[in-house]
Design a protein around this nucleic acid. Structure first.
Lengths: 206, 206
DNA sequence: CGCTAATCTAGAACAAGTTTCAGACTTGAT
DNA sequence: ATCAAGTCTGAAACTTGTTCTAGATTAGCG
């Protein structure tokens, strides 16, 4: 056992050596690069291994499946986005507006690398139970971003449900966009629509 | 070319197509059966071919990929559900209640065959552009079921957006349930939450 | 009936994810 | 510095989705 594993905010897993951390970075970088070039299918494990100068077996030791790898790649990107958003918070007047603004900003970022978005989102929704912890981590990170935008410190269960619904819509709308069944405009409309749930669950405090 | 193809609700197919129709049914049946046993991964093309007494090449002539096959399986099941729902329409007083009731009924049906649900839903969200027409068909069918429950004859664009958001939530909530990251109770809460959007977009006509 | 095109079959072959293994290399502790 | 344990490597093997091929069957037609 004892798979190397860098937990983002916890230190429970055995620390990686310098070289291991470097390997992990190289792998994630190669993964993102290949994904950006051709989406989910272009991320081929042999190619990732070669690109990151690591043996195939080692790649599998770090990430036990292609889906694990891509979900980890998404974690990585999300973390990036979170710090970016923190630097320039959304400017809207209401929580609903700020959440919609934040998600649309994220959406525009994804549009810049649609293939990468494809790989990450498809992996995320295709993931089976064996990837649950990692997918959950991504979900928590997303929730954190949305709650940040809402600027609440003590969300009610109802509000948390609204946030979950927003996340559902976010993922699924991305999927429909990625597979060419919905336009960018439609995704925007749907995001704005679902964000109205926030008004519904947040008593007007005027 | 000339792939065999049975369009829903039409019976333009004469003699030979009788046998082809039978093959198609056998394939879909085998697919559903294997899926019900072990989910997405248990639907192996060689096994489907053997179970339905059809050569592998023939299977691929009827359904050009595993995802196509599973999406077609879903179409089949959905059709079933739609006629079932029509027979006993939801009883709620408001459109929102009726939609929630309908979706919860569908959810309970899926719970009876969770592996089958897994196979169908995972295929649906994993489908790439090459399956768009078929996925779109499923989407339209789902929309029809929801609109039926709403008992509207002339939905506004806003209401259609709400319906799309409900579908997004429906699919994504199923995914989180299937991968064990959300409980049945949570799915219920989220469905009821998103259905409130209907109230929001349907001016109270009292 | 006999012809032709389409379809079906069995099976090999190929592609990419995943597993396995023997041997070389690192690392941490003594 | 040395040893044991753990890690990494390269390569082959295995699995399952997908494609291809050659020959048999079937259907529609004159």
């Amino acid at each position: 056992m004892t798979a190397p594993d860098a937990r983002t905010t916890t230190r429970t897993t055995p620390a990686l050596t310098e070289r291991q951390e470097a390997r992990r970075r190289r792998i994630l970088h190669a993964s993102a690069q290949l994904a950006a070039r051709g989406g989910f299918e272009a991320v081929q494990m042999r190619e990732v291994a070669e690109s990151s100068q690591v043996a195939l077996g080692t790649l599998y030791r770090y990430f036990p499946s292609k889906v694990h790898l891509l979900v980890a790649t998404m974690q990585d990107q999300l973390q990036h986005m979170h710090t970016t958003v923190r630097k320039r918070p959304p400017s809207g007047d209401s929580p609903a507006e700020r959440v919609a603004e934040t998600l649309m900003r994220a959406f525009r970022a994804l549009q810049r690398e649609p293939h990468l978005a494809d790989a990450m989102v498809r992996a995320l929704t295709f993931a089976d139970r064996s990837v649950s912890p990692e997918v959950d981590q991504v979900s928590r990170q997303t929730t954190a971003i949305i709650l940040d935008a809402m600027e609440l410190d003590d969300p009610t269960p109802e509000q948390l449900s609204a946030v979950r619904v927003i996340e559902h819509t976010w993922h699924s709308a991305l999927i429909t966009w990625l597979s060419g069944r919905a336009s960018i405009a439609q995704v925007k409309i749907d995001i704005e629509m679902v964000c109205r749930l926030i008004d519904l669950t947040t008593p007007a405090a005027d």
